[in-house]
Amino acid sequence: MAKRVLVVDDAIFMRNMIKDIFASGGFEVVGEAANGLEAVEKFKEFKPDLTTMDIVMPFKSGIEATREIIKQDSSAVVIMCSALGQESLVMEAIEAGASDFIVKPFRAEDVLAVVKKVLGEV
């Protein structure tokens, strides 16, 4: 069964791109969220196998959302979507329980490689 993914990013542009990448990799994107608040809610709703999480978002940052998601479900797999220059934030997210990270600008194959690796599919 296709692994189920929740995509979190405040930019529709990014969400669409990430969704397309997952679709091309045979994943099922079950939900998306535009901020940290929504992310936590959608995580509860969908219980995805994997969540991609933007860091800088309105209302609640991706780091805060990750912290709450991991608190809900310590086995949750959250992959941070970061940009060059956000190293310290990504480290903070890792402290908060993020499983891994990908770096913008994304290359589809890199994203899928990280995701498959994290999900133990390689």
């Binding site: 991991i70 797999v77 956000q86």
Partner: peptide
């Protein structure tokens, strides 16, 4: 690709037992 960490304030990075618990995610196996 430059490797330097950005100038943003680094959060406290000291590990503690409590935080370790949070890292359980991908360690399910």
């Amino acid at each position: 690709l430059a490797h330097d960490v950005a100038a943003r304030p680094a959060p406290g990075l000291e590990l503690s037992g409590g935080l370790q618990a949070a890292a359980g995610g991908a360690l399910a196996s």
